[in-house]
Design a protein around this nucleic acid. Sequence first.
RNA 1: GCGCCUGUAGCUCAGUUGGAUAGAGUGUCAGUUUCCGAAGCUGAAGGUCACAGGUUCGAUUCCUGUCAGGCGCGCCA
Length: 586
Amino acid sequence: MKQQLIRLTEQALGKLVGLQKLTVTELPEVQLERTKDKKHGDFACNIAMVLAKAAGMNPRQIAELVVGALEDNAVISKVEIAGPGFINFFLSEAASRQVVIDVLQQQDQYGLSKVGAGKKVQVEFVSANPTGPLHVGHGRGAAYGSVVSSLLKAVGFDVHREYYVNDAGRQMDILATSVWLRYLEACGEQIPFPSNGYRGGYVQDIAEMLLQQQGDKLLHAASKVFSDIPADEPQGGDKEAHIDALTEKAKTILGEKHYRLVFDIGLNAILSDIRDDLAEFGAEYDQWFSERSLVESGVVETAIEQLKQANVMYQQDGAWWFKSTDFGDEKDRVVIRDNGQPTYFASDIAYHLNKYQRGFDRIIDIWGADHHGYIPRVRAAMDAMQQDISQLNVLLVQFAVLYRGSEKVGMSTRSGEFVTLRELRDEVGKDAARFFYVLRSADQHMDFDLELAKSQSNDNPVYYVQYAHARVCSVFRQLQERGGEWTPESGQQNLQLLTQPQEQDLFTMLSRYPEVLELAALNHAPHLLAHYLMDLARDFHTYYNAHHFIVDEAELSQARLCLVAAVRQVIANGLAVLGVSAPESM
RNA sequence: GCGCCUGUAGCUCAGUUGGAUAGAGUGUCAGUUUCCGAAGCUGAAGGUCACAGGUUCGAUUCCUGUCAGGCGCGCCA
């Protein structure tokens, strides 16, 4: 509909330029927007004001010309010039009620578009280290990432969702060490548990599992393990040096094969927990990409070699540095440490290069806001390797600050004091949690009150939307109980009977859905869809309270049933994109 | 100190990429059910859009500065 009006306006402008009634060198893009106020019609166009300067005429004059040049058509019933020079379009009744027929015909396809057709886009999200269960902070990224993916899919993109598994690197070594130490404890050894180790109870569970599987095969005396280990922080030492030394000791005492055994049992236990957690939360993935596979297949090495050949690497203090300052970063970055170990950055360079090589038109990384300082160096590396960095899009999700009532809740994976995503789901349910997360724009700090989210109160807007859907279902159940029947064909032939203001409002609201979907997708802004659904639900509830749908006049009744069926369809479509269920009763 | 994000109703947040009289939920107050689900609906009150300049037909939106909050600034990930 919107596109149709834009085309009409463009035609009118073209005609005016052709007749030299309007003298401009270049025509700007015609912008049409929904009006806030019904008095201003359905759509407003500001083209006259935009052109005023270039054409050397006053806006209202231009508007007059444009309106005069509009071709006859069936969709516009009235055009007005208002304010400083707005052109206000009023849709014809036939055009505005057409949406009901469209929705009922297209069903779950209604609203989908093809703006992204033929383009491959990769979306990477969550990618939390498999060193512990997901917490509520990851939940926001999971909800956001999965909905952004669905939105892009809905507007035609070929979407590939991916989780980058950090199964290599120091943090994983620390996890493996923590598991082993807990295992030794379970075998009866007295262990001063390192302050920088992973202290969560799940580590003990994994250690227990290890003990059951392997017996005391991996048992070594604590005195042997802790000999020649530098002091931990509480004893006045350095906690990092302490844990690193313990890791080294674990590797030497256990040997590569047994160390890997400990490492893998931890990795697999936690990773499968994360997979289940995300699947139950409705965050689906097409691929789980292993960092270790990059390292072991030599891809990381190749990427670094490529940087060296591009002459953007240098050696200093025994380490290899990437000259990221040449590409806009604040300082140069270490890629290979003086001990020969590649940094996290090294595998990330390889991973991103790999993304490009897989031929995606757009690459979307969804990261927590605390990683924002990391963006310039990744872009720099891709730039240095002559990749098109405009294809790389990093979206930041701001932190959710947790509250319990009015009390702030601290979060740290290491200390083990955190609220897990699973706990949240158990208490609020998937639907409420997802909707709650996605209600705010991602770049907005979010106060997440656990008490509020956990309470099954009406404060949670998801119920409001779901209730609208259930209510329509209830109407059709009621119809059946009364022995009535819905005949869509007859209803669609009588839509002209829907003249109530609430009915007109719903026409407008329903026809906005495709626009909202596209806007939300292209702006990576799921909250626009969530807010739209609340607005649609509100308009429906208002209608419901003002009029009965099952009435004696058969034609009117059928027409109204068509309208509310269309409302139900659009709510279901929108909720499906958000990954929230649309219950038939609640 | 530098960089990124943010500042809108008592609280939590929207604001259609610069448009017309700045909106919703919640909370407060007042109404509403012989009638398809009251998890609903109707109305009232509530604002110096942090502050000061600038850009133009027009600024909550863009630019500059100030103030306030969050995050980042490792050979951690």
